[in-house]
Design a protein around this nucleic acid. Structure first.
Lengths: 148, 148
DNA sequence: GGTAAATGCATAGCTTGCTATGTAATATAT
DNA sequence: ATATATTACATAGCAAGCTATGCATTTACC
């Protein structure tokens, strides 16, 4: 009895995302890093600092998710947290020196995985694919929160 | 200081997948269902039974993930598990009557979310998008396990 | 027929995501 | 000035994914 798979856009997108994470996590494992750290790395790779809220907004994830990610990165010695002097609610976050030293290598790994993923697409197909993802995220963001 | 977002294919795919799950989970919440149940629902919506291994293969997820999903579905009264008589390692899984009664409604909800997500794409763009996702998953599966 | 290999499922422990809610600090409004 | 809002972050608890490992059970091989 064959499985009748429901290969909708949602299913395929979920599958592709899991595969991206799996492949990237495997390549990051020797560096003791996880795919969840990437948005923070890229946001802070200029050596500057951002608040937790700015990082969450930039990564399009919820605040408690970013808080948990930063806790793991703190545990792993990747970030420095500094309290704001004027507004004691705010914490400024920046990469530790050792983390910053790995930023270029991480970008290389991520670029390689992206290139592998898109290797079967020509440049026009890649463009349509990325534009489609932009339109899909816009449509779903709208459906998620119609006020936007 | 503006955030320099790294909107790669991997990042956008991850974001789209999270949005799909968020929107679907919200629509399934009144039914006390989660997006993780969907592959099982679709695989069993013909009223037949499958083994845990068949379900995991059909959903492209690992066996322990499927085991956890089935435990939640069991807890929620959605599935029936029956031990195989000939081979006591095997468990046959089918939807409960009440779960089966919801299958059509669930498919309608999922179809609606997919339509919403793709609403900004014309039919040619949709085709390229789905083909691209197929090629991307194939390339990443290959990278994940080169023996395939 | 007995050992070894393979198979199917369970368990443990982790990450990355979510919602709901709490708390302290700051800003606003009467 | 005080009560109320808002803001920034923390905490709790869960879902859905992963790897690594264990445990029966069945198959395969001498």
């Amino acid at each position: 009895m064959p499985l009748t798979r429901h290969k909708s856009a949602g299913y395929m997108t979920n599958w592709a995302a899991r595969l991206f994470a799996r492949v990237i996590d495997r390549k990051l494992k020797p560096l003791a890093l996880g795919s969840g750290y990437l948005p923070v790395f890229f946001a802070l790779s200029d050596g500057g600092s951002r608040t937790q809220k700015e990082l969450a907004l930039g990564a399009d994830i919820e605040q408690p998710t970013m808080a948990a990610t930063l806790n793991r990165m703190d545990r792993d010695g990747l970030i420095i947290r500094e309290k704001d002097q004027n507004d004691r609610r705010i914490t400024h976050i920046r990469l530790s020196d050792s983390a910053l030293a790995h930023a270029a290598q991480i970008k290389t790994i991520v670029d390689q995985v992206n290139e592998t993923a898109l290797s079967g697409l020509n440049s026009q197909e890649r463009q349509v694919f990325l534009e489609a993802l932009t339109k899909v995220t816009a449509a779903l963001s709208q459906a998620d929160d119609p006020s936007k």
